[in-house]
Design a binder for these strands. Structure first.
Length: 561
DNA sequence: ACAGGATGCGTCC
DNA sequence: TGGACGCCCTCCTG
């Protein structure tokens, strides 16, 4: 059985589809798709195409040459698959459903013998779990840990609260794609965002129009941001320009704590970029790692580099993630492009002295200790698997579970990172964006997945019919039931449906566009076709969308700036 | 409306 | 070990 449209109860938002283009060529409805297991093209209805000859071959004529009066060049091409270049089938979208090339291994689980359409991990509407070969990872140390550290962790899971409804958004807030998000540690309504161009945004999502983008902090990708533990008005950011910045959020005044490229651009072989970053507040040290495998430390009191750089991953490979254990400050977790996540003891940091090396099949995008006990590890690897180690005190030779999940991307996207819900007392809920799209009521959408990492079950797939772009960057609020997501250049804030106030008019969207001077034309509008949003924003660069229900009438004049 | 580009990793030799 | 090449569901610009 092939997967097909998942019927999802969206809020009543109309999506009008342009009936030509992709829709017209896909006269096949879903039933037809189901019957067409395997190479589908032979039985496909022929398109009405006068340039086709009797053999079903397409003849493409170079019309521009004809117009110029030159002899037309006639090229005859057989209909071939764009992936494997072989005839008999064609990979690509049919409507909102992507048909895989049957010659390739499954794009989701990477195993041969079936396509993504029929992948067992997809059809089940629940992700596949590969249990560890050894079930019992307990030893004496872990038993003591359970007794001492885990009383806070509830044995029975409470019902998860999923923020699944967009309540406000800023569209095209950044000038390039969003790369990282961070909630303010004390102010509940402040979201920080970094982008590929080096800009840092500060957004008050309660007062949607209060936002600021600082443009001169970095010159390229902001890879990670952290709040200063002793002053929540200051943030540190690590960037591919090779610097760590320290920025005052109120004024935007920024200074550089470290610059790994003091001599400027000398070519790619010497240009150092900073990726992973975290703060060890016990030691007052900022830890940061580069694209050559080295870890650096900066004293946050003197703002000066301490000690020598330590090689913590394969020489010349990118170290994309660093995380300090929330309970045991001497433990550090790193991950990188050498396909490993490694656990380190901060007291004896030197090359090759890691406590454990967690092996992965491909690049490790992220590795995090669990937020409360610090005793679990969750990693995201480019091999389309999340891995969970249930105890850092047990045997770490193999993960406790592997969960198949689509987050392997081609290029040009911010890497997906599964993150813990910091509020979940059972330490089992994680959030991660999905790369592969699903056909939801005729729209190809890329949901944000909530996964119970203790079972591998997909708890919720969060999406909005208006968000057709992929959302690789997601952050759960440390205290409130709020999800922030970064999708392309836009930011979205999600809240639980049940917590939203009831919609008075059923056919009214909870989102409106509010342009710099366009309130009237959109007030009460159903909107929210993405193309319409984009068109409006083209006309009104300061346009933004926000929650109609939360809109205070007094806010309107203030928005028309 | 469409072409092209930015761009990172895996594979191959 | 290193350079060339390809790529599967992007997204934006000109």
């Amino acid at each position: 059985m092939a997967p097909r449209t998942r019927r999802v109860a969206f809020p009543k938002v109309l999506i009008e589809r342009d009936t030509d283009s992709e829709q017209s060529s896909s006269s096949d409805d879903e039933n037809e798709l189901e019957e067409n297991e395997g190479p589908p093209s032979e039985s496909e209805p022929e398109e009405e195409d006068s340039t086709k000859n009797g053999n079903g071959e397409r003849i493409e004529e170079d019309l521009s040459l004809k117009r110029k009066g030159k002899e037309p060049i006639t090229i005859s091409l057989k209909k071939v698959c764009k992936v494997c270049k072989k005839p008999g089938h064609e990979a690509g979208f049919r409507g909102a459903t992507y048909i895989d090339c049957p010659m390739k291994p499954c794009f989701l689980c990477k195993m041969p013998g079936h396509t993504t359409m029929t992948c067992p991990h997809r059809v089940a509407i629940e992700h596949g779990v590969i249990p560890a070969p050894r079930k019992n990872t307990r030893n004496t140390v872990e038993f003591v840990l359970q007794r001492q550290l885990r009383p806070r962790i509830l044995p029975i899971k409470p019902a998860y609260v999923i923020p699944d409804q967009v309540c406000c958004a800023v569209i095209r807030y950044h000038s390039r794609r969003v790369t990282c998000l961070e909630f303010h540690p004390t102010k509940n309504n402040i979201l920080l965002s970094g982008d590929k161009k080096g800009q840092v945004g500060v957004w008050d999502f309660d007062k949607v129009h209060e936002r600021m983008v600082y443009q001169n902090i970095h010159t390229c990708i902001v890879n990670n941001m952290r709040f200063k533990s002793t002053d929540d008005g200051m943030i540190y950011a690590a960037s591919s320009d090779g610097t760590i910045s320290s920025t005052d959020l109120e004024t935007g005044m920024s200074s550089s704590l470290m610059n790994l490229n003091p001599n400027g651009w000398q070519g790619p072989s010497t240009w150092r970029m900073l990726y992973g970053m975290d703060i060890n507040s016990e030691k007052g040290v900022l830890l940061v790692a580069d694209n050559f495998g080295f870890l650096y430390m900066v004293d946050t009191r003197s703002n000066s580099k301490t000690g020598e750089a330590v090689l913590i991953h394969k020489k010349g490979s990118k170290v994309v993630g660093l995380h300090c254990n929330p309970v045991q400050p001497e433990l550090l977790l790193s991950c990188g492009n050498d396909h490993f996540a490694r656990i380190w003891d901060m007291r004896q940091l030197k090359a090759g002295s890691s406590l454990s090396d967690l092996s992965h099949k491909r690049v490790v995008n992220s590795a995090y200790f669990s937020p409360l006990s610090g005793s679990k590890i969750l990693t995201t690897s480019q091999d389309n698997r999340l891995r969970i180690w249930d105890s850092i005190f047990g045997n770490l030779d193999s993960p406790s579970r592997e969960i198949v999940h689509s987050h392997d991307f081609n290029r040009h996207l911010t890497p997906f990172r599964a993150e813990w819900d910091p509020k979940d007392p059972t330490e089992s809920l994680a959030v991660i964006g999905r790369y592969i799209s699903e056909n939801y009521n005729g729209a190809a959408l890329h949901p944000i997945d909530f996964i119970d990492i203790s079972t591998g079950q997909l708890v919720a797939e969060v999406m909005d019919p208006n968000i057709t772009t992929i959302s690789p960057v997601n952050k759960l609020h440390p205290r409130d039931d709020i999800l922030a997501s970064g999708s392309s250049r836009s930011l979205f804030i999600w809240r639980p449906k049940e917590k939203s106030e009831p919609v008075e008019k059923k056919d009214e969207s909870n989102i409106i566009i509010c342009g710099g001077c366009e309130e009237k034309s959109v007030k009460g509008s159903l909107v929210v076709k993405v193309t319409m949003i984009l068109k409006m924003i083209d006309m009104h660069p300061r346009a933004r969308i926000f929650d109609l229900k939360r809109l205070n009438q007094n806010q309107l004049p203030g928005l028309a700036r």
